[in-house]
Amino acid sequence: MDGLLFGAAMKRILREYLGFLVMLGVCLVVLKFSPTLGRRVFQIAFRNVLFMLSVIPPIFILVGLFDVWVPKEKVMKHLGDTSGFVGTAISLALGAFTAGPLYAAFPVAEVLLKKGVSLKNVWIFLGAWSTMKIPLLLFELQNLGALFALTRYGMSFLGVLGIAWVLERVIDPEEKRLIRLPFTEEWKKTKESDIMGKQVL
């Protein structure tokens, strides 16, 4: 049983690293046929891995600590009944401080919609999540320098607000209602009665 589990875990790890292993194979072939070029490939890769390993530990430790000490749920609790400037600021902060890829943001957006947060603020949250993450800003500062990172961050801030502002205006009220509909109480009730109806039949 344990062996089976171990085998499954190994298979998963192997699949995750398949691309890397193929690349490693290619690099080794290069090294075999052209030691000069091959050595340069490994030198460049090694230098970059070393750089990454030297700058990333504090960032990830901060992400972990933040996740544990400031849970998302706590922040979201305050979001439902705030609007205007405060709501926008909290939406921005919620997106910027939590960790995760964009597809992980949608379930959080769903919670926000259920709590009645305005669509504009949900779009701001999505924008901040996608491009204003603080851990990534720190990493960008180290990789690409302050001028690059801060200019891009400032532009992202304006862009996130601007895009939400435009969306608020180009999406008509009917479409907005349709977006909100699945996240409202009435919808849940009609769904439930649907299911009950089928059970009766």
Partner: peptide, 25 residues
């Protein structure tokens, strides 16, 4: 927190290792 940090790191390791080698090439 440390376990989460380690998990996040493991999560980006495979694509990082792959892309760094690819780009070095």
């Amino acid at each position: 927190a440390l376990r989460r940090a380690w998990r996040s790191f493991l999560g980006i390791l495979p694509p990082f290792a792959f892309l760094i080698l690819l780009l070095s090439l």
